[in-house]
Design a protein around this nucleic acid. Sequence first.
DNA 1: CTTGATGCAAAATATTTGCATGCTC
DNA 2: GAGCATGCAAATATTTTGCATCAAG
Lengths: 146, 146
Amino acid sequence: MITYDKLLAQFKKILKHKRLKFTKQRELILKCLYENDAHHTPEEIHRLLKIQYPEAGIGIATVYRTLALMEESGIASSISFGVQGKKYELGLKKHHDHLICTACGKIIEFFDETIERRQEEIARAFDFAMSDHTMKIVGLCSDCRK
Amino acid sequence: MITYDKLLAQFKKILKHKRLKFTKQRELILKCLYENDAHHTPEEIHRLLKIQYPEAGIGIATVYRTLALMEESGIASSISFGVQGKKYELGLKKHHDHLICTACGKIIEFFDETIERRQEEIARAFDFAMSDHTMKIVGLCSDCRK
DNA sequence: CTTGATGCAAAATATTTGCATGCTC
DNA sequence: GAGCATGCAAATATTTTGCATCAAG
């Protein structure tokens, strides 16, 4: 897993390249994604930030704007889970896919070489320049079947 | 592809089994999904219905309620595309996955045996009772790269 | 006739935007 | 200092709900 310092450096580099500014809010949102490495909605991230850094007083609009910016730059990525809307996670992790339990909401990440390779072949077959791909397996985890 | 009559029969069967009623609105929404076989948001479906069957005066709430019901019963299924929110399609087609062009929004469906098999193996490996799975490949189609 | 379904409008959510002000660079 | 970023509140957009009425079984 990437260290926070490297992540931060990468983020700063992207900001500089886009001539955007590095602000305390952007740093805290990045840190929040790093430290709470599950998948969170913008609301959840906002709530976490208000609890962890109440003095910063980060507004919800900034959270939305920053997450959009991060997704656009590849620093974060989002995935949609049915009803609950978009959830974000850091995007610089190794690529992976998700298993989602419909009962408890648990999310398990996995990586599978066979699937990765096959996706590339399919994109090629349809003459698609693949920029991203996601796979979700939905079901009941072992705990919830007990 | 399933015929409309078969689809309708299946839908009626499900409704009867759930002790729900077969209404003109539900029929029209089903027909709309059948005839416009792309992927549509609830709003789009509502708009189509207002154009095609203005005299029915179907309300947006009914569209939402009916799509939820159909998804729950497997008659329809939804997929989320980034910003644009949930889109619905008929769920009784053969299972398939999607290629999505980020430039023109085109959606291509495909089916791949290797991926299907591998997904089952992965679910088994994590002791997951898989109920559904989706895969999206995002990128630029050949037309949009020209 | 009983009970679920509908449309409407209001409510609840979710997300985006305008703008005055504050902070990076 | 110039210009982007921020917070706030208002504006939008999206989805759900309450309720009186309608219609299917």
